[in-house]
């Protein structure tokens, strides 16, 4: 199976700190991959490098076989907008927009008329258990509901890869489990891959594969068989 996303010999340093020391990584279609590691191990740097947010000092990042780490800032930004989805720990939703407009925003940014974008965004509310919350603003949602809106926003553009950075870090365990289950399931159902950074082994256990990062290097690969 060919990799949707691949990083070859990725290196990145911040001053005297080595965040990535020659990392090789492949993410396959419909696969969910958890990146774990202690604080400062380089796991977020790896995620940001794969997502085209950080440019590596060395190595290459390939999306469906095409190199993306050497693209200009404008094209990288467009790539992130069109082919990647993002779910962060919290605070990614615009507080003044109702939930449905938060989800519709990436479509509108691509030029889709507002009415059509909102209509398309609404389709995600029922499968994610958000029915009836379309007009609530982020401040009127619980933490779990807000994360599910963020998942909808990440998936509404039908991305190749969804990147999640500690997506359950601000949630209690029960809500976190519920959110991570939805994230992995819906992402797979959409045919997208998931790359997730987490420090929580229980959360990582929901993914097909776990990568341990330590001192900028890939440690143990822990393959899980998805149910």
């Amino acid at each position: 199976m060919s990799a949707v996303l691949a990083g070859n010999q990725l290196t990145k340093t911040y001053g005297s700190t080595t965040a990535l020391a020659g990392v090789d990584i492949e993410v396959h279609g419909r696969e969910s991959l958890a990146i774990m590691g202690p604080s400062g191990s380089g796991k977020s740097t790896l995620l940001h490098t794969l997502a085209g947010i950080i440019r590596p000092d060395g190595g290459q990042v390939l999306l469906r076989g095409e190199r993306i780490d050497n693209l200009g800032e404008e094209r990288l930004s467009a790539l992130r907008r069109k082919r990647f989805g993002f779910v962060f720990q919290f605070g990614q939703l615009l507080p003044e927009l109702p939930a449905e407009e938060n989800v519709a925003l990436p479509l509108m940014l691509e030029g889709m008329p507002r009415r059509k974008a909102v209509k398309q965004a609404r389709r995600w509310f029922e499968p994610l258990g958000l029915d009836g919350l379309e007009l609530r603003r982020p401040g009127q949602l619980s933490g779990g509901q807000a994360q599910r809106v963020a998942i909808a926003r990440a998936l509404v553009i039908e991305p190749d890869v969804v990147f999640a950075d500690e997506p359950t870090g601000a949630l209690d365990q029960t809500t976190g489990t519920e959110v991570i289950r939805l994230l992995t399931t819906v992402t797979r159902d959409q045919g997208a891959s998931l790359v997730m950074v987490t420090h929580d082994a229980d959360v990582a256990a929901h993914c097909d594969r776990i990568l341990q990062v330590r001192d900028g290097r890939i440690g143990v690969h822990s393959p899980y068989t998805s149910a």
Binding site: H48, F84, F86, F88, G91, L93, L94, L105
Partner: peptide
């Protein structure tokens, strides 16, 4: 700054 920063990471153009 947090929400602006995260939106830019997600590819929202600065000009928007």
């Amino acid at each position: 700054r947090r929400v602006y920063g995260l939106l830019r990471l997600a590819g929202v153009p600065l000009k928007v």
